[in-house]
Design a protein around this nucleic acid. Structure first.
Lengths: 112, 112
DNA sequence: ATAATACTAAGGTCAATACCTAAGTATCTG
DNA sequence: CAGATACTTAGGTATTGACCTTAGTATTAT
């Protein structure tokens, strides 16, 4: 049940293009807040809220050294992410199967 | 850009457990509104709103015959869904690579 | 020491979400 | 045709989300 809420939050986090953009940037390596914010036309406090969302569902981690906070992708929830990814893949696969069956049925009914 | 909003909406749709539940149920075959609603303790109008969300981002399709509306998974946006799925997989893979490199670096620094 | 940099905190607006109840409208069933 | 069934419509509330500005604090550079 906590797992359900976790999945909720991960999907929710991924539903925003700014946050997806951050994840993509971070997949090329760690970066500071300012660096991450640069591509987005948004007040910094608004932007850091996005970072907080990503960190709350543990898709990223951060640490501060001096005045610079550095963000990186989090290794921890990888398993969780991969878990839902796998489940989703299953879902789409089943869906595809169902479509196949449906199309087959249609074909049959086409020439009775 | 429309594609971005589309991905937004799909992730948003998937961020609700009721809606994911509906998708999973539908992956086992079509079903009526009442049938889909049964497992959820929720007023019907609230529930049908979830169905509307799923239909708006075209994850499902519906048709009405008599007084019964039947929902099924939509074949149409499969390509879009698979597209983001693939991109996501890429993302996690790159992330995993990055983690590998990071761990390798840590190991090196451990014994200088 | 002063100024610039890199965030961080506080609080405010506005729209969208996720629920609800109550009251429809069709369609079937007896 | 009367009542049950299967949604639909309308409208209301409460929370959350995504922005904003303004004003901090802590660090580094000159």
């Amino acid at each position: 049940m906590a797992a359900v809420a976790e999945v909720d939050r991960v999907f929710r986090a991924l539903s925003d293009p700014t946050r997806r953009g951050v994840l993509e940037r971070l997949s090329r390596g760690p970066a500071s807040v300012t660096e991450l914010a640069r591509p987005f036309r948004m007040a910094l406090p608004s932007f850091t809220e996005h970072l907080a969302v990503l960190e709350e569902c543990r898709l990223v981690r951060s640490s501060k050294k001096g005045r610079v906070r550095t963000y990186r992708l989090a290794p921890g929830p990888l398993r969780a992410a991969e878990h839902w990814l796998a489940r989703q893949r299953d879902l789409w696969d089943r869906r595809l199967d169902q479509l196949d069956r449906y199309l087959a049925r249609m074909k049959k009914e086409e020439r009775p």
